[in-house]
Design a protein around this nucleic acid. Structure first.
Lengths: 202, 202
DNA sequence: CCGCCCATCCACCGATCGGTGGACCCGGGC
DNA sequence: GCCCGGGTCCACCGATCGGTGGATGGGCGG
């Protein structure tokens, strides 16, 4: 089994090499520090499995996965964040692991990926299930957007409540609903996502 | 003294009318519910002082102040937020009061505005002074922007620290510095401001 | 008429965040 | 040489936030 490691941190690459290099039947054929390099090396080295970080300077992991999708290698995502499962799977990832995984788990996951299994970190499985369960009525209501606008303008929940003549409890409810619809878990990410979707003068 | 009241909430307008209508020498000549209406009414009614809310649907207070600036009336801002002093003054506001002001203060402030004084709520005076004192080296450092990018992506301080291989303390420091440079006080507003400035794929 | 969504409100908890007031090291400019 | 800014780190606090698990009422569509 030929393995390509992609991560912008040399230390992480070293760690992965140490954890996986000695595994029987596994050969680490190359390393890349960003998405563009990953795509190039994958074409050249023809790995069976790519172990890919998502957040990297330059071309990020998602873009790289999209480039690779269809062509040869199966891509196992290995990241710090439990928030990017859906985009990763949509882009064509074969699995999604978190960096707090123990080395044995990691080795097992790489093998499973090679054999065509879909590996999901337990912590993200729930997130995925949620998405399937709820068909995601993702448009923000008028109120939700109003609250988010105020929050983007620096308002605390209390200030937003004062501005809208409602209670803090209602502001919190609106925000929680907005988080669910935007698929984020805090106000900062909600503001970012709203900008990306053009809801806040993006 | 002819007074124009601008606020999107009828209740607030009623309150202001009640608080100021009986003041000797003051006459409330009109009310507007948004910026556009305010500009129209100001041209028609020729008030001496405009009492203006900032955050309103449609044309907001800032835009209205810009339209009015130079021409006749002096605009006293009356808002819930202590964060918009600078843009308001830049737009041409004659003063800046907060909605928690007591009615007597408000009446006094309107008079003072009419007489050419600059009225500033005590809470915002400090903010203004800060700005004058610090010539505002406002470009974000590479590190500050990296942290903010992660935060916009939904990272907690802990997660951002893990991703960057630094401590949470450093993440907090970078964020505090970023807040100062962007002139905001929390991550949500920082993300919004960064988008507006085009620092985050705006 | 029964759901469903929206909007409003409540209490409670633990986790996170913002802010203060430091500290150290490094590199560049005056 | 000295100062300044960037980057890293620490401890501590109070405030805020996120999340849970409700409840109520209005309105709209099947």
């Amino acid at each position: 089994m030929r393995l390509l490691i992609v991560d912008d941190h040399p230390i992480v690459r070293d760690g992965l090499r140490a954890a996986l290099g000695a595994e029987p039947g596994m050969e680490i054929v190359g390393e890349a520090a960003d998405g563009a390099q990953a795509v190039r090396l994958a074409a050249e080295l023809r790995p069976d499995v790519v172990l890919m970080d998502l957040r990297m300077p330059g071309m990020d992991g998602l873009a790289a996965i999209r480039e690779l999708s269809g062509s040869g290698p199966r891509v196992l995502v290995l990241t710090t964040f439990d928030t990017d499962v859906l985009p990763a799977l949509e882009a064509g990832a074969a699995g999604y692991l978190l960096k707090d995984a123990r080395p044995e788990e990691l080795a097992r996951a790489v093998r499973a990926t090679y054999e065509g299994e879909t590996v999901l970190a337990p912590a993200v499985a729930g997130r995925l299930a949620d998405h399937v369960r709820r068909p995601r009525r993702s448009e923000l209501s008028r109120r939700e957007l109003e609250v988010l606008r105020l929050v983007a303008g620096g308002a605390t929940n209390r200030q937003a409540a004062a501005e809208l003549f409602i209670s803090e409890a209602s502001v919190k409810t609106h925000l929680l609903h907005a988080y669910a619809k935007l698929d984020v878990r805090d106000r900062a990410a909600a503001v970012a996502e709203a900008f990306r979707r053009g809801l806040l003068g993006g």
